[in-house]
């Protein structure tokens, strides 16, 4: 929270109005709930637009979409999908290669709503500190799921994946999956800030890797206008991605946030009263000075 103890984004609300300071958040929620609604229209209202779930879905008997992470674990056990499944993998890979891998996390994943809620409440209740977990833990877990899948012959992460449990639960019947979701919420609230999505979830880690070189990025072209209110750092689920771009002018680093962990959620754009941030392509990254460096992926 800012030293003046103001709410995150209070300046932006004062400057741009509530709607202006929540534009991308609202669009993101619309995206998440629309996708969920498309999946639920079938089982709840008999309108079959999308069948399946996030692991694999078939839209309008025409568009197959397969989660490449699940398919890759299955491949590690020695099994290849059928043709439609493979086409689905290709479509999803190409899409996230273009728009940014972790767009999945912030615009699609249903757990994001849960962890965002926990983050919001954590801030509201002023809960500080907690257990330390490295932000690269997720890459280790990601590697473990592939090795484990190969060793056990079971699609390993799907045994406990809270993302698919919640999504599948909503569509096919929840059972006790709500307990897992609640556990994630409480973990993020009390144990570690942004603990699940930012440190542990191998799905997010996988999509980080996919989006490593994706062209669609958040950038800070107006970084000269930054008044150091710290709101963007406070609101960002992966705050380490901002600094190189926002504060890199002196070091000759361009304004584009190139870190793979950035989820392209656009909250920094929302909460900045000075309109420092915007969506752009990674190529619009000429620093005011010459030299260009690539920021570390996992820090």
């Amino acid at each position: 929270m800012s030293p003046t103890n103001k709410r995150i984004g209070a300046d932006a609300v004062a400057e741009k109005g509530w709607l202006g300071a929540h534009k991308w958040l609202i669009l993101r929620r619309i995206s998440q709930f629309t996708i969920l609604a498309l999946f639920l229209a079938g089982p709840w209202f008999g309108q079959w637009i999308v069948k399946g779930n996030l692991a694999y879905s078939y839209t309008l008997d025409f568009l197959p979409l397969t989660d490449p992470y699940v398919a890759l674990q299955s491949l590690a056990t020695g099994h290849l999908p059928e043709t439609l499944g493979l086409i689905g993998v290709a479509i999803v890979l190409v899409f996230y290669l273009l728009v940014g891998g972790r767009v999945y996390c912030s615009w699609v994943c249903p757990i994001n709503i849960v962890t965002d809620a926990a983050g919001w409440l954590r801030d509201r209740l002023g809960i500080k500190g907690g257990a330390h977990l490295g932000r690269n833990t997720r890459y280790w877990i990601l590697a473990m799921t592939f090795v484990g899948s190969a060793l056990t012959g079971v699609v390993l992460w799907e045994l406990i994946n809270p993302v698919s449990m919640l999504h599948r639960g909503l569509i096919f019947g929840m059972g006790t999956a709500w307990m897992i979701v609640l556990a994630i919420f409480l973990f993020d609230l009390f144990v570690t800030s942004r603990g699940w999505c930012g440190r542990l979830c191998p799905v997010g880690a996988f999509y980080s890797l996919i989006g490593r070189w994706s062209p669609v990025r958040v950038s800070a072209p107006a970084r000269a206008a930054c008044n150091d209110c710290m709101d963007c750092f406070e609101v960002c689920p992966e705050p380490h991605v901002i600094r190189p771009a926002l504060k890199g002018e002196a070091k000759g680093v361009g304004p584009v946030i190139l870190a793979a962990n950035c989820t392209n959620c656009g909250r920094c754009i929302d909460v900045c009263s000075k309109d420092v941030f915007t969506y752009t392509l990674r190529f619009n990254n000429s620093p005011t000075t010459v030299k260009q460096t690539t920021p570390d992926m996992t820090v």
């Binding site: 694999y56 879905s57 699940v70 299955s74 099994h79 699609v155």
Partner: peptide, 17 residues
């Protein structure tokens, strides 16, 4: 069963159809 748990991606398409 040993192969099934590696090949099945838990999408539920069989359930739906």
């Amino acid at each position: 069963e040993e192969d099934f748990l590696g090949a099945c991606i838990r999408c539920g398409m069989c359930v739906r159809d």
